[in-house]
Simulated scan of single mutants.
Amino acid sequence: MTTKLILTHEVTGLGAPGDVVEVKDGYARNYLVPRGLATGWSKGAEKEIAAIRTARSKRAHDSVEAAAAVRDALEGSRYTVKARAGAGGRLFGTVTTKEIAEAVLASGGPSVDRRKIEAKQHIKTLGTHQVVVHLHEGVSARVTVEVVPA
């Protein structure tokens, strides 16, 4: 069985806010709805979809060219995040997307929405790591993050 939902946040591999998707019942009931990533679809929800798309367009970069300029600025630099670490370079916790966004801003880079930052795996060690920042539909930046001991 499938359930029709409206995404309220971006879900990797599924869609962007405002998209209407059909997913299996268990995925909707146990993951998407409890975490606030989606709401149930109904005929009266068309206004909600329009409001979500309007808010998304305000947050997005104006054009592909502007997003490409931000991408070039991001990819040309290394960003340093300080974190507490134990012996062997293991961190006490993980480096969050909020910390990465703050490091980019602190080093003079462009403002980046933390929800658009995607790490392939949790950053739990010192060293250099790659993350992806989704700037516009079809425009992403590979950002180098260096984690150093605090």
Rank of each mutant, 00 (worst) to 15 (best):
T80V: 14
R35K: 09
V132D: 15
R53K: 15
A69S: 09
E10M: 08
P149D: 01
H122V: 14
V131Y: 01
Y31F: 08
T97K: 10
L14S: 05
A28E: 06
V21L: 04
E102N: 12
W41C: 15
A101R: 01
K116Q: 13
R71K: 12
V70L: 02
F92T: 15
V132Q: 15
D25C: 14
R115K: 09
D72E: 06
K58M: 07
R114P: 14
T128Y: 06
M1H: 07
K98R: 14
I117P: 08
K82V: 11
A66R: 12
T96Q: 06
S111K: 10
V131T: 05
A66C: 07
R115C: 08
E75P: 06
A87E: 09
H129K: 01
A28S: 13
F92Q: 14
M1I: 03
I49H: 12
V23F: 11
R29W: 02
L135W: 07
V81Y: 08
T96W: 07
G127V: 04
V23K: 12
S42C: 13
T12S: 10
R115N: 11
L14Q: 03
T94L: 14
A67D: 02
R71Y: 04
R142E: 15
G44K: 14
T39G: 13
I100K: 02
L126Y: 04
R114G: 03
E146A: 01
T8Q: 11
K58R: 11
A67C: 02
W41S: 13
A119K: 08
D62W: 03
R56V: 08
H61Y: 13
S111F: 08
G13D: 00
Y79V: 00
A16N: 13
I49K: 07
V20L: 12
T12G: 11
L105H: 07
E102G: 04
T94M: 14
V70E: 00
A69Q: 13
T2C: 13
I49W: 08
L5D: 15
L7V: 09
V145L: 03
I117Q: 05
E22F: 09
V33T: 05
E10G: 11
A45I: 06
K124T: 08
S111W: 09
K58H: 11
A66K: 15
A55Q: 11
I52K: 01
L126F: 02
I100R: 01
E65Q: 03
A60Q: 11
L14D: 06
V139G: 06
H129R: 05
V95I: 12
V143Y: 00
D72A: 10
Q130C: 06
D19W: 03
R35A: 00
V148Y: 00
G127N: 04
V11P: 06
R90M: 10
P110I: 06
V143S: 00
Y79E: 00
H129N: 09
A101D: 01
A55R: 15
R53P: 03
A150R: 15
I100W: 02
